[in-house]
């Protein structure tokens, strides 16, 4: 039984279709990742799921309730970590949680009982009386996560939860998300960090121009869409090498700036060729989700 099901969602702004027929279902306990370049429609998809915007076509069921019709009771079982921090700057850490609990109709007593655990979980023990301005970016993100858990939700939406964080802060968030999954929570996550998606998500969808263009586990996506080996080659003669020899040695050759990416199932001949070219430098590595992502969504910049 899905905790979230979207059927053929469509949404246009000013005649431009930003969600062009998206369908998916999310099972309890799953971590589902939504990947896509900027402007792909990830945040709009989340807003449609939460009932914060009305689709032009299609339907959403959140916590088995039709949305936006019954969005309010549905959201009572859901937590949201938004992309932009919107903690209350006038409040302390504790007041932020207390006031947020009231939005869910929780009695202050219940919220006060939950606060110490939530702060412990967020690595903010002892900071209950700190003002928001004194927290680092990572601490704010963790407090936003704690705030999203105030109603003990079954499903948590996270919109780019680690954007702008340093590696330590990012790893801590990942650990906490794994703990939540171990507790049986369901997570829907948008990100453009492939590493994050590969670590956390059992299943993911790559989204571009309002559509799901690929769906599966990270491993499936890699084996289905991309050759297993990559050589990233650069150096003075690389373009001429790419035009000539490389074409026969790699099944796919992509140029990006001064670098040539060679994708192949059998790296032996390619590496042998490269070893005879002292003017070229290269990095040989297994293909990863980022290669899939770039293959499917292209290398040009999105703004």
């Amino acid at each position: 039984m899905a905790v979230l099901a979207a059927q053929n969602l469509r949404k246009s702004y000013d005649g431009q279709e930003v969600i062009a027929g998206v369908s998916f279902g999310i099972a309890p306990g799953e971590c589902f990742g939504l990947l896509g370049p900027n402007g792909a429609g990830k945040t709009t998809t989340l807003r449609l799921c939460l009932g914060l915007t009305r689709p032009d076509g299609g339907s959403v069921e959140l916590m088995r309730r039709p949305v936006p019709g019954e969005a309010r009771p549905a959201r009572a079982r859901v937590g949201v970590v938004p992309q932009m921090d919107n903690l209350d700057p006038d409040f302390t850490v504790r007041e932020n949680l207390l006031v947020y609990g009231r939005y869910f109709g929780l009695p202050d007593r219940t919220t006060r009982e939950r606060i110490p655990q939530l702060l412990e979980f967020a690595g903010l023990a002892g900071r209950a009386d700190s003002r928001i301005q004194t927290l680092s970016g990572g601490m704010k993100r963790r407090l936003t996560l704690a705030r999203a858990l105030i109603n003990d939700p079954d499903l948590i939406f996270m919109d780019e939860p680690t954007t702008g964080l340093d590696p330590q802060a990012r790893h801590l968030i990942w650990e906490r998300l794994k703990q939540l999954l171990a507790q049986g929570k369901t997570i829907v996550l948008t990100t453009h960090f492939m590493e994050e998606a590969e670590r956390l998500c059992a299943r993911l969808a790559i989204m571009d121009r309002g559509r799901f263009i690929a769906e599966g586990s990270p491993r499936e996506l890699i084996s289905r869409h991309i050759e297993p080996h990559v050589a990233e080659v650069h150096g003075d003669g690389v373009m001429e090498w790419a035009e000539g020899e490389a074409g026969a040695l790699a099944s796919r050759v992509e140029k990006s700036g001064e670098t040539v990416f060679c994708y192949t199932a059998d790296p032996g001949p390619l590496l042998a060729s490269l070893s005879r070219r002292p003017d070229l430098r290269y990095l040989h590595r297994p293909a990863d989700l980022e290669d899939v992502f770039l293959k499917l969504t292209g290398r040009e910049l999105r703004d």
Binding site: L52, R72, M84
Partner: peptide, 14 residues
């Protein structure tokens, strides 16, 4: 500026 309303409407408040 603070996006406080966004935070509130993510909870069960319209």
């Amino acid at each position: 500026v603070q996006r406080t309303w966004d935070a509130i409407t993510n909870a069960p408040i319209e």
